[in-house]
Amino acid sequence: MMEKMIFGRYVPADSTVHKMDPRSKLLIIFLFVCIIFLANNWITYALIGVYTFYMLGMSRIPVRFLYGGLKPVLWLVLFTLILQLLFTKEGNLLVEWGPIKIYEEGVRQGVFISLRFFFLILMTSLLTLTTSPIEITDGLETLLNPLKKIHFPVHEMALMMSISLRFIPTLMQETDKIMKAQMARGVEFSSGPFKERIKAVIPLLIPLFVSSFKRAEELAVAMEARGYRGGEGRTKYRQLSWKAADTLQLVVLAILTILLFLLRA
């Protein structure tokens, strides 16, 4: 539980993808989500598939982690496939079985759309599986830097994000402590009728909110005592470094994009 809270779905490993700069990974995922819509025939979908599995292979993420993350969405993929099969009525009739009629176009559409769906989920989970939350925050901060021009508080946002990530385990411990304290007094949290459970939440939440206010205030005092004065001129503890591998992966993606343009129907 604790681990899940701190790292999210991040799986530490020693791989090329893990070592890449978070900025390049964010860029690649963003571009991938855009170019996947270029695919519209078998060969382009095959290309996207090869690319997805190439990235997955490089990341050395064990299959069971991928499966764990995918499980809840697999039925949705299946559901879209079935919907497409049943309701697309174009092309030649392939199967007729009572009221169920399956058309050629339905099969084509169904397979394409579920494949797109599947590859998208694999690639977006790859980002959070191979990049720690704090790295993503740093990456987003640098990528969003231009937004400072329109007075979007990029620095404050990244700072708040880091504080939040830091405080999740702390507050989790706090919650655990309060829950145990209330359980010792006889409160039942996970059994009984719904109404009773809601009632049991109140003596948990009120101390939790009060202590959160206290922690936030202490943090603000501590920040000011150390001279926090906002974003201007602050230096960073974690430095991002753009390596040759990052450029290489962007080039690979660019080649994929060009191929997609050439081969799409």
């Binding site: 809270m5 504080i163 926090y228 906002g230």
Partner: peptide, 28 residues
């Protein structure tokens, strides 16, 4: 300035709390 720092720290801590409450809802 003072209340700006407090604003930052409070919003951050309560974001963490909001995220956590989703998990608590799961436990319950």
């Amino acid at each position: 300035k003072r209340s700006n720092t407090l604003f930052i720290s409070e919003v951050a801590v309560f974001t963490a709390l909001a995220y956590l409450l989703d998990f608590v809802a799961g436990i319950l």
